[in-house]
Protein backbone atom coordinates (compact mmCIF):
# COMPACT_ATOMS: atom_id res chain seq x y z
CA UNK A 1 0.00 0.00 0.00
CA UNK A 2 1.49 3.31 -1.05
CA UNK A 3 1.62 6.13 1.42
CA UNK A 4 0.07 9.53 0.81
CA UNK A 5 3.20 11.11 -0.66
CA UNK A 6 3.66 8.22 -3.06
CA UNK A 7 0.04 8.43 -4.10
CA UNK A 8 0.32 12.14 -4.81
CA UNK A 9 3.46 11.62 -6.84
CA UNK A 10 1.76 8.86 -8.77
CA UNK A 11 -1.23 11.09 -9.53
CA UNK A 12 1.09 13.80 -10.80
CA UNK A 13 2.58 11.33 -13.22
CA UNK A 14 -0.84 10.49 -14.56
CA UNK A 15 -1.87 7.56 -12.40
CA UNK A 16 -5.58 8.16 -11.98
CA UNK A 17 -6.02 5.06 -9.87
CA UNK A 18 -3.72 6.59 -7.31
CA UNK A 19 -6.10 9.50 -7.02
CA UNK A 20 -8.88 6.97 -6.60
CA UNK A 21 -6.98 5.62 -3.61
CA UNK A 22 -6.79 9.11 -2.13
CA UNK A 23 -10.52 9.52 -2.66
CA UNK A 24 -11.22 6.20 -0.99
CA UNK A 25 -9.00 7.13 1.91
CA UNK A 26 -10.58 10.47 2.68
CA UNK A 27 -14.04 10.54 1.16
CA UNK A 28 -16.03 9.47 4.21
CA UNK A 29 -14.01 11.51 6.62
CA UNK A 30 -14.46 14.63 4.56
CA UNK A 31 -18.10 13.87 3.89
CA UNK A 32 -18.87 13.35 7.56
CA UNK A 33 -17.33 16.70 8.41
CA UNK A 34 -18.93 18.57 5.54
CA UNK A 35 -22.27 17.05 6.42
CA UNK A 36 -22.19 18.94 9.69
CA UNK A 37 -20.73 22.08 8.19
CA UNK A 38 -23.10 22.22 5.21
CA UNK A 39 -26.16 20.86 6.94
CA UNK A 40 -27.41 18.33 4.42
CA UNK A 41 -26.27 15.12 2.76
CA UNK A 42 -26.87 16.41 -0.74
CA UNK A 43 -24.98 19.61 -0.22
CA UNK A 44 -22.14 17.79 1.54
CA UNK A 45 -21.86 15.24 -1.26
CA UNK A 46 -21.70 17.97 -3.88
CA UNK A 47 -19.06 19.84 -1.94
CA UNK A 48 -16.95 16.75 -1.36
CA UNK A 49 -17.09 15.76 -5.00
CA UNK A 50 -16.22 19.25 -6.15
CA UNK A 51 -13.41 19.44 -3.62
CA UNK A 52 -11.86 16.23 -4.89
CA UNK A 53 -12.12 17.41 -8.48
CA UNK A 54 -10.50 20.73 -7.62
CA UNK A 55 -7.82 18.96 -5.64
CA UNK A 56 -7.12 16.76 -8.63
CA UNK A 57 -6.87 19.71 -10.99
CA UNK A 58 -4.72 21.74 -8.62
CA UNK A 59 -2.62 18.92 -7.25
CA UNK A 60 0.55 20.21 -8.84
CA UNK A 61 0.18 23.33 -6.70
CA UNK A 62 0.04 21.30 -3.50
CA UNK A 63 3.23 22.21 -1.69
CA UNK A 64 3.03 19.67 1.07
CA UNK A 65 3.40 22.34 3.75
CA UNK A 66 0.34 20.88 5.40
CA UNK A 67 -1.05 17.40 5.05
CA UNK A 68 -3.05 16.48 1.99
CA UNK A 69 -6.22 16.15 4.00
CA UNK A 70 -5.78 19.57 5.56
CA UNK A 71 -5.30 21.02 2.11
CA UNK A 72 -8.31 19.11 0.81
CA UNK A 73 -10.42 20.20 3.73
CA UNK A 74 -9.52 23.82 3.08
CA UNK A 75 -10.70 23.47 -0.50
CA UNK A 76 -13.95 21.89 0.66
CA UNK A 77 -14.46 24.49 3.35
CA UNK A 78 -13.97 27.35 0.89
CA UNK A 79 -16.36 25.69 -1.51
CA UNK A 80 -18.89 25.43 1.25
CA UNK A 81 -18.62 29.13 1.99
CA UNK A 82 -18.79 30.01 -1.67
CA UNK A 83 -21.86 27.86 -2.27
CA UNK A 84 -23.57 29.23 0.79
CA UNK A 85 -23.06 32.76 -0.49
CA UNK A 86 -24.49 31.84 -3.85
CA UNK A 87 -27.63 30.21 -2.73
CA UNK A 88 -30.52 31.52 -0.80
CA UNK A 89 -30.47 30.29 2.77
CA UNK A 90 -32.79 27.36 3.15
CA UNK A 91 -32.97 27.54 6.89
CA UNK A 92 -32.41 30.16 9.45
CA UNK A 93 -31.98 30.28 13.16
CA UNK A 94 -35.54 31.49 13.42
CA UNK A 95 -36.82 28.67 11.29
CA UNK A 96 -35.01 26.08 13.34
CA UNK A 97 -36.18 27.65 16.55
CA UNK A 98 -39.70 27.68 15.20
CA UNK A 99 -39.34 24.00 14.62
CA UNK A 100 -38.58 23.56 18.28
CA UNK A 101 -41.76 25.30 19.31
CA UNK A 102 -42.27 27.90 22.00
CA UNK A 103 -39.91 30.69 22.90
CA UNK A 104 -37.18 29.15 25.03
CA UNK A 105 -36.86 29.98 28.68
CA UNK A 106 -33.65 30.93 30.39
CA UNK A 107 -32.24 27.59 31.45
CA UNK A 108 -28.75 28.58 32.30
CA UNK A 109 -29.00 27.10 35.77
CA UNK A 110 -30.17 23.73 34.62
CA UNK A 111 -27.99 21.02 36.09
CA UNK A 112 -25.92 19.05 33.60
CA UNK A 113 -27.58 15.83 34.72
CA UNK A 114 -30.74 16.81 32.86
CA UNK A 115 -28.73 17.02 29.72
CA UNK A 116 -27.08 13.71 30.46
CA UNK A 117 -30.41 11.94 30.39
CA UNK A 118 -31.17 13.13 26.91
CA UNK A 119 -28.99 11.30 24.50
CA UNK A 120 -31.04 12.18 21.55
CA UNK A 121 -28.80 12.49 18.57
CA UNK A 122 -31.38 14.40 16.64
CA UNK A 123 -31.56 17.09 19.27
CA UNK A 124 -27.80 17.46 19.19
CA UNK A 125 -27.81 17.72 15.43
CA UNK A 126 -30.53 20.34 15.53
CA UNK A 127 -28.71 22.29 18.20
CA UNK A 128 -25.52 22.08 16.19
CA UNK A 129 -27.34 23.41 13.15
CA UNK A 130 -28.44 26.47 15.08
CA UNK A 131 -24.88 27.49 15.91
CA UNK A 132 -23.20 30.13 13.85
CA UNK A 133 -21.12 28.76 11.02
CA UNK A 134 -17.92 29.83 12.77
CA UNK A 135 -18.84 28.01 15.95
CA UNK A 136 -20.19 24.93 14.24
CA UNK A 137 -17.12 24.59 12.08
CA UNK A 138 -14.64 24.82 14.89
CA UNK A 139 -16.65 22.40 17.00
CA UNK A 140 -16.91 19.88 14.19
CA UNK A 141 -13.20 20.11 13.52
CA UNK A 142 -12.47 19.47 17.16
CA UNK A 143 -15.10 17.04 18.34
CA UNK A 144 -15.90 15.12 15.18
CA UNK A 145 -12.61 15.38 13.34
CA UNK A 146 -10.55 15.21 16.52
CA UNK A 147 -8.10 17.83 15.29
CA UNK A 148 -5.71 19.55 17.65
CA UNK A 149 -5.81 23.34 17.95
CA UNK A 150 -2.79 23.75 15.72
CA UNK A 151 -4.41 21.84 12.87
CA UNK A 152 -7.69 23.69 13.27
CA UNK A 153 -5.80 26.98 13.21
CA UNK A 154 -4.02 25.84 10.08
CA UNK A 155 -7.21 24.79 8.32
CA UNK A 156 -9.15 27.90 9.22
CA UNK A 157 -6.16 30.21 8.96
CA UNK A 158 -6.70 31.53 12.46
CA UNK A 159 -4.42 32.16 15.43
CA UNK A 160 -4.50 29.37 18.00
CA UNK A 161 -5.83 31.80 20.60
CA UNK A 162 -8.83 32.48 18.40
CA UNK A 163 -9.43 28.77 17.96
CA UNK A 164 -9.36 28.28 21.73
CA UNK A 165 -11.68 31.18 22.35
CA UNK A 166 -14.06 30.20 19.57
CA UNK A 167 -14.21 26.62 20.75
CA UNK A 168 -15.10 27.70 24.24
CA UNK A 169 -17.88 29.96 22.98
CA UNK A 170 -19.12 27.27 20.60
CA UNK A 171 -19.42 24.79 23.46
CA UNK A 172 -21.17 27.34 25.58
CA UNK A 173 -23.64 28.12 22.84
CA UNK A 174 -24.25 24.46 22.12
CA UNK A 175 -24.78 23.78 25.79
CA UNK A 176 -27.43 26.48 25.94
CA UNK A 177 -29.10 25.28 22.75
CA UNK A 178 -29.21 21.74 24.05
CA UNK A 179 -30.81 22.84 27.26
CA UNK A 180 -33.45 24.76 25.36
CA UNK A 181 -34.12 21.84 23.08
CA UNK A 182 -34.43 19.37 25.89
CA UNK A 183 -36.85 21.53 27.82
CA UNK A 184 -38.98 22.20 24.78
CA UNK A 185 -39.10 18.55 23.83
CA UNK A 186 -40.49 17.62 27.23
Amino acid sequence: MRDETQLIQAVLTGDTDAFGDLVTKYQNRLFNTMFHVAGSREEAEDIVQEAFVQAFVKLDSFQGASGFYTWLYRIAFNLSISRRRRRRPESSVDAIRDAFGAEPKDNRDQPPQRMMRKEDVKLVQQALAVLSEQHRTVLVLREIEGNCYETIADILDLPIGTVRSRLYRARLQLRDELKKSILESE
Binding site: G20, V23, Q27, N28, F31, Q125, E143, I144, L174, L178
Partner: peptide, 23 residues
Protein backbone atom coordinates in the same frame (compact mmCIF):
# COMPACT_ATOMS: atom_id res chain seq x y z
CA UNK B 1 -20.69 16.75 28.26
CA UNK B 2 -21.29 18.92 25.22
CA UNK B 3 -18.29 17.37 23.52
CA UNK B 4 -19.50 13.88 24.43
CA UNK B 5 -22.91 14.64 22.95
CA UNK B 6 -21.44 15.82 19.66
CA UNK B 7 -19.30 12.72 19.40
CA UNK B 8 -22.41 10.59 19.84
CA UNK B 9 -23.66 11.67 16.44
CA UNK B 10 -23.19 8.69 14.14
CA UNK B 11 -20.73 9.05 11.31
CA UNK B 12 -22.17 9.79 7.91
CA UNK B 13 -21.08 7.52 5.10
CA UNK B 14 -21.15 8.10 1.39
CA UNK B 15 -22.93 5.66 -0.79
CA UNK B 16 -21.12 3.09 -2.89
CA UNK B 17 -19.80 4.36 -6.16
CA UNK B 18 -18.75 7.79 -4.99
CA UNK B 19 -15.11 7.12 -5.80
CA UNK B 20 -15.97 6.21 -9.38
CA UNK B 21 -18.20 9.24 -9.65
CA UNK B 22 -15.32 11.49 -8.60
CA UNK B 23 -12.96 9.81 -11.02
Amino acid sequence: EVGDQVRLIPNQQLEQGFRDQVL
